[in-house]
Nucleic acid binder design. Structure first.
Ligand code: SF4
Ligand code: SF4
Lengths: 140, 140
DNA sequence: TAATTAAAGACAATAAGAGTCTGTAATGTC
DNA sequence: GACATTACAGACTCTTATTGTCTTTAATTA
């Protein structure tokens, strides 16, 4: 059981997009260069993020991607659900019992993870990165 | 990202083994019958549980499996790690940064899930199942 | 109109999971 | 000791999901 690589790429891309000046857009080829991966593959990931409403895309010349909603509303969980989907981690399709005790534990533990992911905003990562950069600059 | 079916089978098997009278052993063919799956496949899962030290196996006639340590020491997390391994859910092999902020969030959220899984004991599931059975019997 | 860019979908390659089969080693029974 | 029983190991196949590429289409700007 692992997160897909796509989730990793998506998180990095989202952090980068939030870090960008709000009005500017950026194309997939440039984003792919930064992360050193194929533009066509990244394109699929970006399409998922677009459909989830996390970013906006404009086709055509001078088009590209940018953050859609306010960065204060975008959590880690939003990105992960956009990529991984929202089905449960534990598969109970075998013989579903009402109020099964095993399922309850698995579901609860998953909720604990998701609660943390929902609390953490991507924009806080960007802010902290800026702070680190600032401190480094000051210490010179 | 999903738990493997093997984890589901392992949890059910462990609950059953804990529910059994402590001294008795049970063979893989019988366990497989209960869960309606192939004995050879279940055997692989049981071997993993054995190597993790959760159950004991004795080969030969009248052999089989039984719980090894005290049920009070067996958590959901123990079973899950025995099957899924203990590597992290989030894959940072791409370009590992020291003290990366993204990784920290992913790691922390995973810890939250595992903390819950570590707190929950399989034996409590068995106890609650017995209670439910008791209540049902009383209401008749 | 022409250039640019995202989106869609078909397709191939890879990896992981699920499951089967066969043979071997250990243990108890006679 | 011979035999039946059982766990264990490993090779093997099948299926599924992920990863990634390629081609075509649609929208937008200049
Ligand atoms: S955990 Fe419970 S609900 Fe899920 S497959 Fe097992 S018995 Fe059914
Ligand atoms: S999350 Fe951080 S450590 Fe992990 S791959 Fe990205 S930059 Fe590297």
């Amino acid at each position: 059981m692992k997160y897909s690589n796509a989730t990793n790429y998506a998180l990095h891309t989202m952090v980068y997009l939030i870090w960008l000046p709000k009005s500017s857009t950026i194309g997939v080829q440039e984003l792919a260069e930064i992360q050193k991966l194929s533009p066509t593959y990244l394109s699929k990931i970006l399409t998922k993020l677009t459909k989830a409403g996390l970013i906006e895309s404009t086709p055509g010349a001078k088009g590209g991607y940018k953050i859609s909603k306010s960065p204060n509303e975008i959590s880690f969980l939003d990105v992960i659900i956009a990529i991984e989907g929202e089905s449960n981690l534990f598969n109970c399709s075998i013989h579903h019992n009402e109020g099964c005790l095993i399922e309850e534990v698995m579901r609860q533990s998953e909720e604990n993870m998701k609660a943390e992911l929902k609390n953490r905003l991507l924009v806080d990562i960007v802010k902290k990165m800026e702070e680190q950069k600032q401190q480094k600059a000051n210490s010179n």
